[in-house]
Design a protein around this nucleic acid. Sequence first.
DNA 1: TTGACGTACTTACGGCGTAAGTCTAGCGTT
DNA 2: AACGCTAGACTTACGCCGTAAGTACGTCAA
Lengths: 225, 225
Amino acid sequence: MPDRRASRVPLTRERVVAAAMALADEKGQAGASMRAIAARLGVEAMSLYNHVAGRDDILDGMVDAVFAEIELPAPDDADWKAAMRDRAASARAALRRHPWAVGLMDSRGHPGPATLRHHDAMLGALRTGGFSIPLAAHAVSVIDSYLYGFVLQELSMPLGAAGDLDEVAGDILSGLPGDAYPHLTEMINAHIMRPGYDYGREFPFGLALILDGLTPDEDQGAPAR
Amino acid sequence: MPDRRASRVPLTRERVVAAAMALADEKGQAGASMRAIAARLGVEAMSLYNHVAGRDDILDGMVDAVFAEIELPAPDDADWKAAMRDRAASARAALRRHPWAVGLMDSRGHPGPATLRHHDAMLGALRTGGFSIPLAAHAVSVIDSYLYGFVLQELSMPLGAAGDLDEVAGDILSGLPGDAYPHLTEMINAHIMRPGYDYGREFPFGLALILDGLTPDEDQGAPAR
DNA sequence: TTGACGTACTTACGGCGTAAGTCTAGCGTT
DNA sequence: AACGCTAGACTTACGCCGTAAGTACGTCAA
């Protein structure tokens, strides 16, 4: 008979973090309790502590693993805008794949190696594109703020487009005297409840607006070519 | 003698939510447990359930209360940019005053009346400023994404500027071969660790960039004046 | 006076993170 | 071969958590 769980493979911090991520993806962050993570690995809760400092350490690892999933901007891409666009799309996809990640990002002050590598690559791409140090700092701040904030809003929406929005719309339109919230009502009726509406399509608009507002302030790629 | 707690004032949903907010401000969101909230009101935990559906209901109320603290953009302000700037500053202040709010915004699908009023006022200010419905939708999306994302990043930073950043900088510069993260190192040394650096100052830059990228696409204030 | 209702109460359950201590299989040394 | 050490998984227990269920009591209407 095989042993009850393939405990041939050794428990490691990586395996613990991976199990926690899978669990969080399936049942939400709260579903990834120490006991549940351990059970998924065929082990008891306290055994995790031999490889991990505690729950917070696992959470840190999860956030870093999400950063590791994001495609880095190519450091020698002559077209910095395209690099920023691709990287933003990849980051948004990763954050949607792991919806708990955005909520974990505050409260977590210990960036892991993948996080650091990621930010280094961002700065590298911008510097190569001709951004001075202060302007690169500005650029990273705007771009990432927009990215995180957009995903945050996107995730706080219900699903697809209609469905639950109907419900909210109903709450808004009903019961109240005349219409409180006239502009909101107008927006919902004339725009959001339209058949093809999808909030996700707003993403490229805002990103393009931001990227078009940024202009390199140094010669293009000093050492490049 | 006075009764042990001024239980003269009746318990209400509002008082419960207010107590929860005060507690969360002081000890973090996790510190605002049902038992702790009740204790602060001189009452037992289960008594809260006579006024509130459960913990989630309290959380919903807290988020709505934060929106209520944000100054609404004046609906007849001829200068829509100024209105957006003022409102963004007020919102950022509120979100910093209640650092748990951003983290609560995802996962919370039931907007309260203050939240609805807030969004209605935003749309109203933009419509008056000459934005069409679709463009107003775009504008709200970019502006609020930037706002929430910025605060999220701001809060995930340690405190002031130096202090804990030193520690992270140490982690980056030490131990590793040569310099991994060369651009990050450069950024830290040449920019972030400079005496007067304060991440919060990045906020106006990004906001101005976004606002300057938005242009009304209709006649100014159709009914106004 | 009596009943109903609203409100606060006590008790209890299962689950949480983790401190503390125990058991055992495998290893390096003698 | 025998020993002792150690790493890693284990059991137990503590004080929290949110909340289901049931109880006690003060107020007000009939």
